[in-house]
Simulated assay, not measured.
Amino acid sequence: MCNSITKKFKSIPISTHQHSVHKKNLDVEKGISYFTPQKKIIHIETPIDTSTFEVSDAFYHNFGFYHILILQIKDKNRNDRIRNNSKKFILKGDFNIDDISPNYDTPSLDNIEILHVITYNSDIPYTPKTFPFTPEEAGGGVIVVGP
């Protein structure tokens, strides 16, 4: 478990603006979520339906031209699918790429312009064999360099 990342996320009530920008729970939107290569910082905001979600782990894959950040989240009180539920909170956090343990590939933001993000809602630990994700359990999007 990436405790250092877990502690960097918090749930805040969703604003009217955030509600209209985000399409579904677990998605990330370009411009709202972003990364800053010089500072090695990744900023993620994703809608959720309760304030009891936490990031339980993070994984990074480098496929050469395709870089993926996978954030595994889970609700501390239940294990329900939330993809199509009402958006009531934003799970928001900033963390350093070095906070991600190199489970599969060494995390890096050097020389990349696009980072694919998958938010994975499950108590089942992530492994490469858990691909592909079903739409009810995962969301995400593409983020680019930001402020």
Results as ranks from 00 to 15, higher is better:
Leu91Asn: 03
Ser108Leu: 03
Asp80Lys: 15
Asn103Gln: 10
Lys88Tyr: 00
Ile97Gln: 01
Asn79Gln: 14
Lys87Pro: 03
Pro102Ile: 06
Lys76Tyr: 01
Arg83Ala: 10
Ser86Pro: 07
Asp80Met: 10
Asn96Lys: 10
Arg81Met: 14
Ser108Lys: 04
Lys88Asn: 15
Tyr104Arg: 06
Asn85Tyr: 10
Ile97Trp: 00
Thr106Cys: 06
Asp98Pro: 00
Asn77Ile: 08
Thr106Phe: 11
Asn85Pro: 00
Tyr104Pro: 09
Ser86Met: 11
Ile97Ser: 04
Lys87Cys: 05
Leu109Asn: 08
Ser101Leu: 13
Asn77Asp: 14
Asp105Thr: 10
Tyr104Leu: 09
Lys88Ala: 08
Ser101Pro: 10
Asn79Pro: 08
Ser108Arg: 01
Asn103Lys: 15
Ile100Pro: 05
Asn84Val: 08
Lys76Trp: 00
Lys76Val: 10
Pro102Lys: 05
Ser86Arg: 15
Lys88Leu: 12
Lys76Ala: 12
Ile82Thr: 02
Asn96Phe: 02
Pro107Glu: 01
Asn84Leu: 15
Phe95Val: 09
Ile97Tyr: 00
Asp80Pro: 01
Leu109Ser: 09
Asn96Tyr: 06
Asn103Tyr: 15
Asn77Leu: 10
Pro102Thr: 05
Ser101Gly: 01
Thr106Tyr: 12
Asn96Trp: 00
Ile100Asn: 09
Asp99Arg: 08
Tyr104Asp: 03
Lys76His: 05
Asp94Met: 10
Asn79Met: 08
Phe95Gly: 04
Asn85Phe: 11
Lys87Ile: 07
Ile82Lys: 07
Asp99Phe: 07
Ser86Trp: 03
Ser108Asn: 09
Asp105Asn: 14
Asp105Leu: 06
Lys92Ala: 13
Asp80Glu: 13
Lys88Cys: 11
Arg83Thr: 05
Asp99Gly: 02
Asn79Gly: 07
Ser101Asn: 10
Arg81Gln: 14
